[in-house]
Write a protein that binds this DNA or RNA. Structure first.
Length: 157
DNA sequence: GCCAACGTTGGC
DNA sequence: GCCAACGTTGGC
C-alpha cells in the first residue's frame, strides 16, 4: 500500500523549483541528521508520494508533490569532511544516515500556507501542525493527504 | 532577530 | 541514569 510523507526544505537552500530544474527532475534527499526522521526515510518505499514543504519561507507551506523513486540507501555525504552534512561518527561500514531519491511531480499553482492548513479543522492532529513539531521528514495519514489534495485542487481553480 | 521547543552531549 | 548546557529548527 502506498504511504504518504511530508518533506521539509528551506527554499533558499533547495526549493521545489530547484528540484524541477534538476537532472531528470530528481535529487537525493541528503542531510537528514535526526534519528526519527531517518527512520521514516528508511520506511519509505518506491512509489510513495510526499508533499514538498518550504520551511523558513514567507509564508511557510506545502508547495507541491514529489515521488520516492529510490528506496533508502547510505547518505555518503556523512563521510565527506567537506560536506556541511559531514558526520565524524559515520564510517563506510556503519552508515548512520540514510537518504532516498525523490522526483518532481507537480508544483501547486497556489501554495497551501501553514496558516491555511491550521484553519482546516479536519487536519487537527497532523504532525506538521503539532506544537513544537520540527521533524523534517514526517508521515502523512491517508485522510490528511486526501483533504490537502482536495484543497490544492480547489484553490488552484 | 527573537525565542520556544526539541535533540544531543557529556560530566557526575 | 540524571540533567545542565549547548546547538538546531523554524515560526513569527
Amino acid at each position: 500500500m502506498k504511504q504518504y510523507w511530508l518533506l521539509k526544505s528551506e527554499p533558499q537552500t533547495f526549493s521545489i523549483d530547484d528540484l524541477a530544474q534538476s537532472l531528470h527532475q530528481t535529487t537525493c534527499w541528503e542531510g537528514v541528521r535526526n534519528y526519527q526522521a531517518r527512520n521514516f526515510l528508511r520506511t519509505m518505499k518506491l512509489g510513495d508520494h510526499a508533499f514538498f514543504y518550504h520551511s523558513n519561507d514567507d509564508p511557510p507551506g506545502i508547495v507541491g508533490l514529489v515521488e520516492i523513486v529510490k528506496d533508502s540507501y547510505a547518505d555518503h555525504y556523512a563521510l565527506d569532511p567537506k560536506s556541511r552534512y559531514y558526520d565524524s561518527k559515520s564510517t563506510p561500514t556503519l552508515s548512520r544516515w540514510s537518504m532516498v531519491d525523490v522526483q518532481y511531480i507537480q508544483k501547486f499553482s497556489i501554495p497551501l500556507s501553514l496558516g491555511t492548513l491550521r484553519d482546516v479543522g479536519e487536519l487537527e492532529g497532523m504532525e506538521l501542525l503539532r506544537k513544537g513539531s520540527r521533524l523534517s521528514v514526517q508521515p502523512v495519514r491517508p485522510h490528511e493527504w486526501k483533504i490537502i489534495m482536495r484543497l490544492a485542487k480547489t484553490s488552484s481553480r
